[in-house]
Amino acid sequence: MSRLSAGSAADDGKGAGTVDDAVRDLLLLMPRMVGRVKKIPVPEALRSFALAPRHLSLLSYLLFDGPMTVNELAAKLQVAPTTVSLLVGDLSRKGILERRADEADRRRRIIRIAPDQKPSITAWLAPGAAAWRKALAPLTQEQRRLFVDTLLAYEAAVGGEEQG
């Protein structure tokens, strides 16, 4: 019997025991999670904008962390500032984001979610945020950090990147 077809500790209700058990459990879980997340409806006010996952990440940062510059967004998203500029330009033309001059440095632009779009974006992200809060609340701070670090390591490994 191969590792991928071996029985799992989850079959007996005791949870993942070995690394292979955990891998099996996660390979079965991830498609269900992705499927459920995809079923979260885009609010009516945002449906015509054809938003993609890359937009969701950018909007999440602006919603949770507040207005910021293109360079700050690029650092958080781990992409080039030109990529963020293109996304911001696209979302600004659609009226989802606003750019304004930074009071401290008029050459810089601060990006924020347009006030009339904020309720729809909040409603779109709320189910996912509530689910994560419920799942993470029982964990200690160290356990939450380990969980997030593990997901980041998985993402890097799937993407063929080195974890740094």
Rank of each mutant, 00 (worst) to 15 (best):
V84L: 01
S120M: 06
R93W: 03
L87G: 01
I121C: 02
A123G: 08
A114P: 03
E103N: 11
A101I: 08
V84W: 06
H55E: 05
R108V: 15
I121M: 02
S92H: 15
E72S: 12
L51C: 06
K134S: 09
T83I: 13
E103C: 10
G128F: 08
T83R: 12
K118G: 02
P127L: 10
K94S: 10
A104M: 09
K76D: 00
P81Y: 10
S92Q: 13
I111F: 04
P115V: 07
D116M: 09
S92Y: 10
P119H: 11
D105Q: 09
V79G: 07
P115H: 08
R112Y: 06
A129C: 13
L62R: 02
E98A: 14
D102M: 05
R108F: 11
A74C: 07
N71L: 11
Q117P: 00
A126G: 02
P119D: 12
E103R: 15
P81W: 10
Q78K: 14
R107N: 15
L91F: 09
A74I: 07
L91W: 06
A114G: 03
P81H: 08
K134I: 08
P127N: 05
A74W: 07
R133P: 00
A104R: 14
R100Q: 13
A123I: 09
L77G: 06
E72Q: 11
T82V: 09
T82P: 01
A135H: 09
H55A: 05
G89E: 00
F64G: 07
W132P: 01
V88N: 04
L86E: 11
K118I: 09
L97T: 03
H55I: 02
P119F: 11
P81A: 07
A104I: 10
V70W: 00
L86D: 13
P81Q: 08
P119Y: 15
F64A: 12
S120K: 05
L97Y: 03
I110Q: 13
E72P: 05
P81T: 07
S85P: 02
D116I: 06
Q117M: 15
R93P: 01
I121Y: 07
S57E: 03
W132A: 15
R112S: 15
N71K: 14
P115F: 08
I96Y: 05
L97C: 01
D105C: 00
L56G: 12
S57F: 01
L56Y: 13
V70Q: 07
R109Y: 08
G128S: 14
V84K: 04
L56A: 14
D90G: 00
F64V: 14
R100M: 14
R133T: 11
G95I: 02
I96S: 06
T82S: 14
R112D: 14
H55Q: 01
L73A: 12
E103M: 09
L97I: 00
N71S: 15
P119S: 11
M68F: 01
G95H: 04
A130T: 11
L62E: 00
R107D: 12
I110T: 00
M68C: 08
G95A: 03
L59K: 02
H55V: 05
M68I: 03
P119A: 13
L97M: 04
R107Y: 11
A129L: 14
R54G: 11
L58R: 03
L73E: 05
R109L: 12
V70K: 03
